[in-house]
Amino acid sequence: MNIKGKTALITGGANGIGYLYAKELLRNGLKCVYIMDLPNSEGDVAVTKLEAEFGKSRAVFLVCDVSKAKDFELTFKEVLDACKDLDILINNAGIMNDSRWEFMIDLNLKALVRGTLMAIDHMGKHKGGKGGTVVNIASTVGLNAYPYFPVYCATKHAVIGFSSSIQELYEKTCVRILTMCPAVTITALITECANKALEIMDKDELIADIKKRPSQSAEHVARALMDLIEKGDNGAIWVCAKGEPPYAIKRPTYSDYRIFQ
């Protein structure tokens, strides 16, 4: 996909890695990026910085809590009314906070599913659209077990399962479904996680476990996401880990898990 002249929407894009996604897309010729985030996210500041670097009318901030269905639906419609044609949706909004596991499921999974379905409904050729791309942000813990954040791990497994399943509708919709799985990345998600685990978890063990894992910069993941959007086939699942070049993976079938004795 050549993103020059395209329009994108990023949930949770006002700061952190979401902001870097917006910056990388604009650097590569995106026409305009719409950012959805919370009222306390300083999204206006993010837009000011993006416009200072890339020009006026290249970024728009919309206050929205995507974990609330009606709020997300109305704000999504506001984006469509403004830009007419949305080409790319990046479902980035999410937290790693097992102590608020019910809210985390609402945000990490339900909002992502809702965003994907709304995007398909708008972009899909079965509804008169021209096709497009949805990028769902998962994690490498969506591919493996992670005992220190089991609920977060479950939401990311669900993201991969959902994305891998709905991508099968491509022949009908012409909407590419892509999934990015970053490993440990230096963001607030990681640096502030110690007090967000379940009470049963040992915080010292958690901190020690994270410190021993190879990390990477958020800027590296943003560049990898750009590559995924430009080069990824429908249904692609890419891993970005250790600051190394991203790579595609193939999900096993259930028979691959069989233990032969």
Rank of each mutant, 00 (worst) to 15 (best):
E42R: 14
K77P: 01
A111L: 05
M118R: 15
T116E: 01
M104Q: 14
M36V: 06
A22Y: 05
E102F: 07
E102C: 08
G94D: 01
V47H: 10
D121G: 03
M36L: 13
G29I: 13
N108T: 11
E78W: 11
C83R: 09
R27P: 00
K127N: 13
I88V: 10
L109P: 05
A111G: 05
A93D: 01
A82H: 15
V47L: 08
A22S: 07
I35W: 07
V63Q: 15
N40Q: 12
F103H: 07
M104F: 07
K49P: 01
C32P: 00
L50H: 02
F54E: 06
L74T: 14
N108V: 08
L117I: 14
F76K: 11
L30W: 00
A46D: 09
E73L: 10
G124C: 11
E42C: 04
L89S: 06
A22G: 05
I120Q: 10
R100M: 14
A52R: 13
Y34S: 09
A82I: 15
S57T: 10
S99G: 07
A111N: 08
S57D: 12
D106Q: 11
F103P: 01
K125M: 12
A69Y: 15
D121A: 07
L117A: 10
T75M: 10
F54C: 01
L117Q: 15
S67Y: 00
F76Q: 08
D44S: 08
E53H: 04
F72A: 04
M118T: 12
G124I: 15
L112D: 11
A111Q: 08
G29C: 11
E24L: 02
L107H: 06
Y19A: 00
P39R: 00
A111K: 13
I95P: 00
V66E: 09
F72Q: 13
G94L: 02
L25Q: 15
D106W: 01
M123V: 02
K84P: 04
K49N: 09
I90C: 01
D44V: 06
K125C: 05
K84N: 09
V47M: 08
E102K: 13
R114D: 00
I88A: 05
H122W: 14
G55C: 03
E42T: 03
K127W: 04
L109Y: 10
V113E: 08
V63D: 09
K127E: 05
Y21G: 01
L25E: 14
T75C: 13
A59F: 12
M104S: 08
I105P: 13
W101Y: 14
V79P: 07
L80Y: 11
L25Y: 07
K110H: 06
S67H: 01
N108I: 11
S41W: 02
A59I: 15
I90R: 01
Y19S: 00
